[in-house]
Design a protein around this nucleic acid. Structure first.
Lengths: 151, 151
DNA sequence: TATTAATTGTTAATATATTAACTAATACGA
DNA sequence: TCGTATTAGTTAATATATTAACAATTAATA
């Protein structure tokens, strides 16, 4: 019944894992004058030619109110542009400029290098278990229990 | 050689896991007029009667520049207080007030409830593997390879 | 078709993160 | 003991997160 160690709680372990690996990546982003969030947006645009702000928010995990300013700064840096939808005038598409697309070839190799370094000490099975566990956490609010109707 | 899916990268999986579980906790914190960071500080003070700002920063994973303001606001809420060290006048201890200590009995049960809910769908083995994996990530910068001298 | 509801983005206010520079106090070496 | 390096906290500037409220547009429905 005693208080368990706060440092070993799941949230703190997740935060600590991020604190440990992200500075390495941010170091690279900074070399290209990018913030982590700006990187995330570009990273998604390299996989999607054209994407609405809503979907961009989902894929980057950047909350929409934050997205507004981050997109503004990326536009000022001439790396992306806004494009209002004709079909539905509420929607706004975001598109990478040529300069934005060109960054991919420069940044991705550096990032993949670090990524490989992080992954290296893991066995393939260990890594799979880690990813599976994280994936299960990520679906916590959707289907806690599969074989049972909830509410 | 093609770009792997950004959404399945380790950093995004970690962020997504946090995005999924933290709102539930924050919901409780807000009931007690606490922010997540304020909670973290109190949570640590419930395990340590007296702690320096530096160590508090390490345990809460709150960067020291942020800590200043967060501690200020907790003091204004009469939940903690500062106490300068006599032995080393550079150091500042943080201590919970009685009001701050009293929060533990009210908040912890609610938090433990959610925590149990998150942990529930996992087998004990699965959970252990997840924690071990996160722990290994957290030691990335310390000892990437054990049986080898680096540098 | 006029109203209402839902969707998509945005603005605003406050709190926190990031990075660099800075102060005060202490430790250390010539 | 003086000068220097180190350590503990802080301040400053900018970027982002969180929450609530809001505007514009579209969808739904009586």
């Amino acid at each position: 019944m005693a208080i368990q160690d706060f440092s070993q709680s799941l949230p703190m372990m997740l935060y600590r894992a991020l604190d440990e690996i992200m500075p390495k990546f941010r170091c690279i982003f900074n070399e290209f004058a990018l913030t982590e969030q700006q990187w995330r947006i570009l990273r998604v645009l390299w996989e999607h030619d054209k994407i609405t702000l809503g979907r961009l928010s989902d894929l980057t995990l950047i909350p929409s109110p934050s997205l507004v300013g981050i997109v503004d700064r990326l536009i000022k840096a001439k790396l992306i542009r806004r494009e209002r939808s004709d079909a539905d005038r509420r929607m706004i598409f975001v598109v990478a400029t040529e300069e934005g697309r060109n960054l991919e070839a420069k940044v991705m190799p550096r990032v993949n290098e670090i990524y490989k370094e992080i992954k290296e000490p893991f066995s393939m099975q260990q890594w799979g278990q880690l990813i599976d566990g994280l994936d299960q956490i990520s679906h916590f609010n959707k289907k806690t229990v599969t074989n049972e109707h909830k509410e």
